[in-house]
């Protein structure tokens, strides 16, 4: 049994290393214009992102991502609560929300460009609006699935409306809200890249696409690598946060399963 575990560990850690090594050696003397040597890519990666364009482009992109996502999170949860708790509001905006959700988020970027221009404002607005819907819809679903027993208990204890919303509904809907937030974060990341690729000159996405259009292949690979790492890290960080905030929920689920 122990041996199997060790073997699995070795396979799990070894394969990525093996793949990277294969990439390194197979591309070492590559003259293919599309697939430059990994060494060249890493050198360009270091030259570009550490730290010449770090502040002007990397931080700019990440800042837009963060601000846009934060706006979407707050507005999404707020609107979700408003729609779930006030039926007339829900009836009124439900069809609109569903229609807007059907539109691919990236397709909204050209509209924002025509309305606001190419600046940072446009990018943050695009990110915020596109990332709003997953959180909002998850919040509504989360509140609707709160058990009636829980609400009855809250009423029996004569909790005020504010207490019921903040101390009962919000925690009970939290797991679903966090699932929505995670989807929102992915959407925000996609729209961040798209908003930079459509006619902007700053940001990681813009630099990567520009490098491709001017056939600076190693620069393009460096951009793709950076975007991939950011996508991965942002997701990991969010998962850690989620695990921390929802530790009570994860614990209670484990108890329920063990019982």
């Amino acid at each position: 049994m122990r041996n199997v575990k060790i073997r699995n560990w070795v396979i799990g850690a070894g394969t990525p290393v093996l793949l990277l090594a294969a990439w390194w050696f197979l591309s070492a003397n590559s003259t293919d214009p599309f697939f430059p040597p990994l060494q060249t890519i890493l050198v360009r990666f270091q030259e570009l992102w550490l730290f010449e364009h770090f502040q002007s482009d990397v931080l700019l992109s990440l800042g837009n991502l963060f601000v846009g996502f934060a706006i979407a999170a707050v507005a999404g949860i707020g609107l979700g609560f408003a729609t779930a708790l006030l039926p007339p509001v829900r009836w009124m905006i439900d069809p609109l929300i569903h229609f807007l959700r059907g539109i691919p988020p990236v397709a909204l970027v050209p509209i924002f460009i025509s309305l606001i221009g190419f600046g940072t404002q446009m990018r943050v607005t695009s990110i915020a609006l596109a990332a709003l819907f997953p959180t909002m819809i998850a919040t509504v679903d989360g509140i609707r699935s709160v058990s009636n027993d829980l609400m009855d208990v809250a009423r029996v204890y004569r909790l005020s409306r504010k207490e019921r919303v903040l101390n009962v509904l919000l925690p009970a809907a939290m797991p679903q809200i966090f699932s929505g937030l995670q989807v929102s974060l992915q959407v925000a990341f996609i729209v961040m890249i798209a908003s930079e690729m459509l006619g902007s000159s700053q940001g990681i996405g813009a630099m990567t696409l520009l490098a491709q259009q001017s056939f600076m292949t190693a620069d393009m690979w460096a951009g793709i690598l950076l975007l991939g790492v950011i996508g991965f890290l942002v997701n990991i960080l969010f998962s850690l946060l989620k695990r921390k905030v929802l530790s009570w929920y994860i614990g209670s689920r484990r108890m329920a399963r063990a019982a």
Partner: peptide, 11 residues
């Protein structure tokens, strides 16, 4: 998994 296709679009 968390890397969207838009990242490899230039390639």
């Amino acid at each position: 998994k968390p890397v969207p296709p838009i990242v490899v679009l230039p390639l």
